[in-house]
Simulated scan of single mutants.
Amino acid sequence: MSIRAQVISTVNEKGIDEMGPNDLIVKYHSVDVRTRSRLIVYSNQKAVVRFQGQITGVFDPGAHDLQTPANPVSQFFARLQYSGNLPWEVEVLYVSTARHEARSEGSTQTKELVPMRYQVAYYFVISDPVKFINSIQFSELKYTVNDFAVFLSPIVDQSVSQVLNMTSLSEIYANLHKVTDAVTASLRSVMDEMGVNLLTCRIVRLEPEDETMRRIIQFTAIGLDPTTAIRARLAEIMAQRSDPAATNMMLGVPYYPINLVIGGAGVLPQIQQIPPSVKPSEKPRERREEE
Rank of each mutant, 00 (worst) to 15 (best):
S135V: 05
T184P: 00
Q218H: 04
N12H: 08
A265L: 10
F151L: 15
L24K: 04
I16W: 01
V267E: 07
S153P: 00
E112L: 04
S170W: 06
Y255D: 09
R99C: 08
A70I: 00
Q52V: 12
D23G: 02
L224Y: 15
P280G: 06
V145E: 04
K178Q: 13
I40M: 12
N248E: 06
C201F: 00
S96V: 03
V145M: 08
R36C: 11
Q240P: 00
V204G: 02
N259R: 10
L234N: 12
T108I: 08
T35E: 12
G84Y: 05
G53M: 09
N248G: 03
E193M: 13
Q119E: 14
V95S: 08
D157H: 14
V183A: 02
A221H: 13
R202I: 13
K279D: 10
A265P: 05
T228C: 09
I155V: 15
T68H: 04
G266F: 09
L268E: 12
I217C: 00
S161E: 04
F138A: 07
T220C: 07
E236P: 01
S161L: 03
R103L: 07
E89A: 08
C201A: 10
V145G: 06
S277V: 15
T35P: 05
F138W: 14
P244I: 00
T212R: 13
D60T: 14
R287K: 11
A174Y: 07
A182K: 06
F77Y: 13
Y173H: 14
I25V: 15
T200K: 11
V261S: 13
E286H: 04
P87R: 03
A98H: 12
E91L: 12
R38G: 03
G106A: 00
Q81R: 12
G106S: 01
R188M: 15
V278G: 07
L206K: 08
D65A: 05
M166E: 15
V95M: 02
F59K: 05
N165R: 11
G20D: 12
S37G: 12
E282L: 11
T228H: 13
D23K: 13
S9Y: 03
A98T: 09
Y28L: 01
